[in-house]
Design a protein around this nucleic acid. Sequence first.
DNA 1: CTGTTAGCGCGTTCAA
DNA 2: TTGAACGCGCTAACAG
Lengths: 340, 340
Amino acid sequence: MPPTDPARAATLSDVAQRAGVSIATASKALNGRGDVAPGTRRRVMAAAEELTFTPNAMARGLLAGRTGTVGLLTSDLEGRFVLPILMGAEDAFGAGQVNVFLCDARGDAIREQHHLRALLSRRVDGIIVVGRQTDPRPSLGQELPVPVVYAYSPSDDPRDVSLTPDNHAGGRLAIEHLLACGRTRIAHISGDPTYAAAQDRVAGARAALADAGLDFVGEPLFAAWTEHWGRDAAAMLLERHPDIDAVFCGSDQIARGVLDTARDFGRDVPGDLAVIGYDNWEIVAANARPPLTSIDANLQQLGRQAAQRLFEAIDGVATESGTRRLPVRLVIRGSTIAHR
Amino acid sequence: MPPTDPARAATLSDVAQRAGVSIATASKALNGRGDVAPGTRRRVMAAAEELTFTPNAMARGLLAGRTGTVGLLTSDLEGRFVLPILMGAEDAFGAGQVNVFLCDARGDAIREQHHLRALLSRRVDGIIVVGRQTDPRPSLGQELPVPVVYAYSPSDDPRDVSLTPDNHAGGRLAIEHLLACGRTRIAHISGDPTYAAAQDRVAGARAALADAGLDFVGEPLFAAWTEHWGRDAAAMLLERHPDIDAVFCGSDQIARGVLDTARDFGRDVPGDLAVIGYDNWEIVAANARPPLTSIDANLQQLGRQAAQRLFEAIDGVATESGTRRLPVRLVIRGSTIAHR
DNA sequence: CTGTTAGCGCGTTCAA
DNA sequence: TTGAACGCGCTAACAG
């Protein structure tokens, strides 16, 4: 006998009726609670199977006071940085029976507020706010009935919990790698100087250079995070300072432009000139000629950690607030060290 | 007087109590239903405001038999094609008070089944299945209690509703553009030949060539969707058939590799050799030298349409089943037509 | 105009 | 071991 009405999802009472027991007994049998006679339990299970019974999570959540859902509030899905974070979070939650509401505010504060209301109305157990830059963003406030974790863009309120990549350490790491490769005449080309990312990376790089008693050759060049700018800046640089032996670039795209210009100038990479990028954007870095050494911000891991922190907060574990900067990682390819 | 317990979300009965009315009256006042005295309504609204009352969507859904949620079941978030579709769908739903559960199956059938159960348990009103290739995928089956729309990867069951880009038309469009540019000696380099996308595009291209009484110069070359393959294939091609005047590439990445090799061979693009890509992957196409003319599959639109179709199905509108192929679009940049 | 009543589907007492 | 009764938060009938 097939389900009565395939269009309507079966309910517990359907199962109970079919098994000839009460709703309460059916519930216990299915959830393994209380004492249920083995035979009864089997009958209930069979009935549930036949009806392809799927418990109604809403009804359950209504009772439990928890929904087992979280909201992912992103400011911009297009952004290259959001996706890996989202994957990491989805991954961490997926394992724990939690489902994710995805909301894209498209960088619009009104829309964000709208989505926030919707999420609260859905009674999500917590919210992760994913930004598209590492610059601080306005806090959602302290008055929310659920915990919030900020990922990538930290909140501007130190009472919030924020996770962001450590760009300062990334700048340092890049320079230390170049130094380890024997380079000493290092220049810097980066993106939009109003980005905290640009400032933090150059600061970290400068600190590392200072530790070695060095400084950049020429002033760091800032403009845009694009391949085009990388090409132009590299041309300026190679004309003005032909003696440089390495370029630290603020993004992989910039680095790729630099590689192009270096080739036009007849410079050999990495023999004559080492180039290091930032972000480890696989599609850009791995396909460059030569493949690009880069700094990876471990974004997927960041997403996982954000989920982890949110879990803790939901479970009432007191999480330390403030902005936590997560370690980054060096990915070595052919643009800084030659194959042998 | 602040909310009693900021940690706990306010309930309708809290509002009613504070306004000194019954729960039912509060409900009517807030939803604009029935006849409520203006003064009473104001008192209720004020109370709701003060408590930042947010109606519990679960309780509401339990009653209404609808949740106002849909599931987005993707096989692979990493994929470049999933994101725009997802954005389009999220966009279309966002306007209609619907929220989206995102589930990433990571290309694993078990995990997909798991997520499907979860979505049904959440009583989503419908599901969109987003694949990563245009090859047909196994149907989720006809027994589901909610409507399903397949996007990008069509279902292998014609009783399902599927939306996929028209790759055949894309291949045709690419060739017609090259012909319009006055090219006649056209070669083809594409990716993995086991992909339907590769086959459909080449078939469409061949049809367009045949209409003009032409055929490809040399046999189309298939291997991988990578820049690297594009470089290698172009080298082979330019050596064997130096007289070609255009290359139709199966992907933007391949095209980009072709551009690199053309430059190495001293060929002028587009003067001497026109190159057209596929996918219009902005980051790849726009940054190429010269910027790459490409075919855009309108994926965001596809996502919106999938949402639209799902809406209709949810509302009981009889949607025609089968696979619908959506039109693609030509994006002209500098690799096929020179600036003047 | 307002309040009382009856569920939506489920888990959890507590009697029987 | 089983089942009747209650309530999670809300809306839709009705009755007052």
